Amino acid sequence: WQCQELQKYEIIAEVFNRHNQPRAWISTGPQQQHGTFYEFRTYYIQPHLNAAFLKLTTEKIHLRTAHSELIGYWSVEYGGLNQVFHIWKYDSYAQRASVRAALAQDPNWIEQYISKAMPMLSSQDNEVTYLVPWSKVQKPPKDGGVFELATFQMKSGGPAVWGKTFQAAVGTHTGSGYAHAVGVFHSEFGLLNQVHVLWWYESADQRAATRHTSHEDARVVAAVRESAAYLLSQKSKLMFPCAFSPIK
């Protein structure tokens, strides 16, 4: 009887500990202080229709921006062919739902753009992201140049786990003048535990030269090494802004 009672209490203690241990490892980290989020959209265009899609979008994008705020719209040059990448800002999920409902009832949008554009695409993808707590959207110091979307697959836990070291890695690049960070975002819907850094450079050649120099900077090397302890994989795309892109 005493053995049975002891086993029972051990089981109760184990359950209690399991439900009361720190949960940072599954946390999304410091929560947003407001509802604003950014939808990342990637459209994959049929190769022979790439030019036609970009022409149509340039002519008709005003039908879409009449409904919600466009942050930026880019054509991917390296790291993925026949793609466009765009970012839309929403104040809440309710606002996004109302925008999508309004678009579905907008005859100009449907007839002049969406009915023509959709057959040009092979697929689409979207992701909901939030700015990390220490970042904000900052336009480049001047128009022109190129943008790099660097995507990092991090270990589980979100900014609460990798935030400080990742902030240090980004900070050494921006603080040393190696690059301009337009924004740092982490995923909420889509592939989780991703963080995206949208960088701006004056040109592709300037980016190459800057990276060569920064890789010899002991401050950058040390910060990146610490952040890499939480990194699983990474990828990047080099993009050119479209003429109508608010950030360009």
Rank of each mutant, 00 (worst) to 15 (best):
S227N: 12
W134M: 05
S115L: 04
F185R: 00
E77I: 10
R18I: 04
Q112L: 08
H180D: 00
W1P: 09
T57V: 10
S135H: 00
W74H: 05
G145C: 11
A169D: 09
G29C: 05
Y38S: 01
Y90C: 06
R96D: 06
H186Q: 09
P246R: 00
F244A: 07
K164R: 10
S187K: 01
L238C: 04
A102W: 01
Q124N: 09
V161T: 14
F147T: 05
I11K: 04
V146E: 13
V224Y: 15
A52M: 03
V15S: 05
E69L: 03
Q95A: 12
P246A: 03
T213D: 15
V99F: 02
V15E: 13
I114F: 04
N20T: 01
P140K: 06
T36K: 11
T42K: 14
V15T: 02
V184W: 00
Q153H: 11
A218F: 03
F53D: 09
P30M: 04
A204T: 15
E111T: 01
R100V: 06
C3H: 06
H34K: 14
H48Q: 14
E226L: 09
V195N: 00
L191K: 14
V221F: 06
N50E: 13
L149Q: 15
V197I: 15
L70Y: 02
L231C: 12
F185G: 00
Y44K: 08
R211K: 12
I26K: 12
T172N: 03
P159G: 07
K155I: 08
Y78L: 15
Y201M: 12
F152I: 02
L49R: 04
L70I: 04
T42S: 08
K89E: 13
Q46C: 12
L54S: 02
V220H: 05
I110N: 08
Q33I: 15
E39N: 07
G175N: 06
P140A: 13
A229T: 08
V182K: 02
K136R: 15
F240A: 12
G171W: 02
F152N: 04
R207Y: 08
N193V: 03
P22M: 00
V224L: 15
A101W: 00
A209Y: 02
W134K: 14
T57Y: 11
K237M: 14
S122Y: 01
M154N: 09
T42P: 10
V184H: 00
L70T: 13
A66H: 08
P107F: 06
Y73G: 14
T174W: 08
S98H: 04
E188W: 10
I11F: 01
E59P: 06
S176G: 10
E14N: 10
F166E: 09
Q2Y: 03
P246L: 00
E69V: 09
